[in-house]
Nucleic acid binder design. Sequence first.
DNA 1: CCGGTAACTTTCCATTGGAAAGTTATGCTT
DNA 2: AAGCATAACTTTCCAATGGAAAGTTACCGG
Lengths: 226, 226
Amino acid sequence: MTDSATTASVSPGHAHRNGKMPDPEPATRYHHGALPDALLSAARLILERDGVAALSLRAITRAAGVSHTAAVPHFGDLAGLLAELAATGMDELRAALVAADGTSRLIAEAYVFYAMDHAHMFELMFRSDLIDRNRPRYREAASALFAILAEPSHSSATVAQEEDKVKDGIYDMPDAARYTAAWGLVHGLAVLATDGRLDPLRSRLKDPVSRKELVRQAILSVPPLL
Amino acid sequence: MTDSATTASVSPGHAHRNGKMPDPEPATRYHHGALPDALLSAARLILERDGVAALSLRAITRAAGVSHTAAVPHFGDLAGLLAELAATGMDELRAALVAADGTSRLIAEAYVFYAMDHAHMFELMFRSDLIDRNRPRYREAASALFAILAEPSHSSATVAQEEDKVKDGIYDMPDAARYTAAWGLVHGLAVLATDGRLDPLRSRLKDPVSRKELVRQAILSVPPLL
DNA sequence: CCGGTAACTTTCCATTGGAAAGTTATGCTT
DNA sequence: AAGCATAACTTTCCAATGGAAAGTTACCGG
């Protein structure tokens, strides 16, 4: 087969910069109008359905109904496109952490659970060999994510104390060490869990529990770090 | 270019099953005699020099001076070969942990430092999309590695107590949670550090330190888990 | 000595990302 | 309102990949 199965054809969407409608419904048109979004949607679809390995330039463009080089003007190359997609994942993870507002343990849980609930996206987000980490969009999303983890407002100290500490975004070692440990813990748990690395242990459990429960207990076994 | 640069030609090695020397030095011979080892050596060379992305079947076989399908009889496919290579990495990491015998913090440090000192190998070891995790050699190496982390002998309890606990390799939840957290922490730190994810934070440090120092402080900021 | 089989090589193919060059439409300028 | 620069695409081409298939070579047990 040449394509067929993977052809999900993401619709154009129409959003010309000016309000002018370009044409009612010309089955296929040369200038797509909203290709970047269409490509990202198509890529997301493929990612969620078939995993990162299926994210080929050709599969994505095929799903969007364009030629396999059509992404170049917008994203440069595949790594550029995937970086933009990964950036949306970063945003979502960040939103999940913000939503889990509360104790540092709930934030930690939110990090790992997001990864488990969006394993493919999470993998893409940290596959440095696949994405162009220098894309501004990605850089900012990534740093905004870390900012949540390094936000001292979760701690027990007063607001005034903490606002003082974070001045100019400069950290002192005790804080940096704790943020690093916290990120390391949740990221490691996320990676191990989504990769099935915890299952051998889980199957040797006296009374078995779900992946998430094991992760939760693991987080609880560590005193709050933030 | 077709090859040249990547041609590192790993020497045959000679180890015919019987003691009989097959031929003094016939520049090239059809039956290599020790292809599996030669391929693994070549792969290791390429991995350490150029990273996992360079680990193509063709590059490896080229470096070993054989045709690009010569690995099939021995390893099945590329994922099989890489799994064997990754297994040796698992063994080395395990050895490093054993050598770091002592407090659980030193073991944790050894885990992360091995990853940082052998970043490419460490990446391969956990790239489930590249390796055939079902290969017995890999499975055993991986489980042996975890066994070190889950070895209660690092704790403060008596030998008798612990030997009792680990009976039949069945864990109860409190232990499992601690082992999971410990592995998560060191693995996460290893992944983040080797991927350069800690550098943005590091550059915002009041008084900068090396990657390793940051990692060490991070580990120290967490109470011993094992 | 000979036949079976494992260890290789050669050839072939589908798939990939990207470069290069051609085509089409858009919108800015006058 | 016309036309022209240019951005958004398509087509074609290429080198590289992993693996299947079929052909060769050499070892090894009888």
